[in-house]
């Protein structure tokens, strides 16, 4: 079996609707990852169904707020809190919001700057 592995770029206005549709179609949330890019972040949300894997890629500007998907997938809370704490991504309406106290590290948002 080949690793079916697709990355879809997605815009903010259809993002939430797509996530809800994924849930209706019984996709499992497997991974959330933030990557620092110039002027902002790339958020990748990966979903699996059977052995297929789809990643939704959302580009977020540095000071832009995004809303949390914990309303749809409650299990996202750990990984979204992690992205908020380590990268400084602004995530709104987290169901369990640790307010940057998940890892309780000394340095603020260590992944925000390179090096």
């Amino acid at each position: 079996m080949d690793q079916k592995n697709e990355i879809r770029e997605i815009t903010r206005d259809v993002f939430f609707a797509t996530v809800i549709r994924m849930k209706m179609e019984l996709w499992r949330l497997v991974q959330i990852c933030a990557v620092r890019v110039e002027g902002g972040y790339d958020m990748s949300y990966s979903f699996c169904r059977n052995y297929e894997m789809v990643t939704l890629r959302l580009h977020v500007k540095e000071d832009e707020e995004i809303s949390s998907i914990t309303q749809v997938y409650p299990c996202a809370f750990l990984q979204e809190n992690e992205a908020a704490e380590l990268f400084g991504v602004k995530i709104r309406n987290l169901t369990v919001d640790y307010r940057s106290k998940l890892y309780r590290i000394d340095q603020e948002t260590p992944f925000k700057e390179k090096g």
Partner: peptide
């Protein structure tokens, strides 16, 4: 529940 909560 296992699927919804993302168990592996």
């Amino acid at each position: 529940q296992a699927i919804l909560q993302g168990a592996v």
